[in-house]
């Protein structure tokens, strides 16, 4: 009897610990996501990246923390000065993209982020990286779109790439604009429900649609 009580006790304790840690996880994620929403400067994103990095170390079975850590590092790279400084942060973001891919293989959201990351690495030195990285970015984004045709971010980044290339070569932007429009609709259709899933990136699609209508 004593034994049984003990076992039950332990089970209860474990569950409550788990519930407690799940609650702590959600709380930490919630706090970090709120801060990410407000982040503007390099330092803000550094703060946020550190938080997600801590969470990902603790909750290593979840892909969300590594996804957002990578996104925060990408944002740091966008705000850093100089190629080698920019690369330092995109390299760091790659670590977390790989980690996220390991936890959640075949996740369109992570593959789309990989495509976006290639775009940012490319933008650090477009003259010498364009040739090598633009096919890589297109490949990743194409993969993300085929995995989930309704992913707004994958469609939006792809529209961005297509639009840039069409403009550069003076060819028709119709396809790119149609995709941007579709991406925007997909953004609008995203559920309002708060969840940990990514919902960012709508403004870029809006800008592109705006550009297309001009």
């Amino acid at each position: 009897m004593k034994k049984i009580t003990l076992i039950i006790g332990i089970i209860v304790a474990t569950f409550s610990l788990q519930a407690q840690s799940q609650e702590a996880y959600m709380k930490a994620m919630g706090k970090a996501l709120t801060e990410m929403g407000k982040a503007q400067k390099f330092e803000d994103y550094q703060q946020v990246a550190a938080q997600f990095e801590r969470i990902s170390a603790r909750a290593s079975n979840q892909w969300h923390p590594s996804y957002y850590a990578a996104l925060a590092y990408i944002n740091m790279s966008m705000r850093a000065e100089g190629i080698s400084e920019k690369d330092k942060w995109t390299n760091k973001s790659q670590e977390f993209i790989d980690q996220a891919k390991g936890t959640a293989p075949n996740n369109a959201e992570i593959v789309a982020l990989q495509g976006f990351q290639h775009m940012i690495v490319l933008s650090a030195d477009p003259n010498s990286r364009g040739q090598m990285l633009s096919p890589k970015a297109m490949q990743a984004l194409g993969q993300a779109v085929s995995m989930d045709p309704t992913n707004p971010r994958a469609n939006s980044f792809m529209a961005q790439m297509e639009h840039g290339m069409a403009q550069y070569f003076g060819s028709s932007t119709a396809n790119a604009c149609a995709r941007a429009q579709k991406a925007l609709e997909l953004f609008n259709a995203q559920s309002e429900e708060t969840s940990l899933d990514p919902s960012w990136g709508k403004s870029t699609a809006e800008q592109l649609v705006q550009q297309c209508s001009n």
Binding site: A24, Q47, A50, E53, R54, A57, R58
Partner: peptide, 18 residues
Amino acid sequence: PGANVYLKDSFDGDVSSP
């Protein structure tokens, strides 16, 4: 600046200031 300071297996921590 910018170092990630935290307690192992927890969400508690800070980033070092400038």
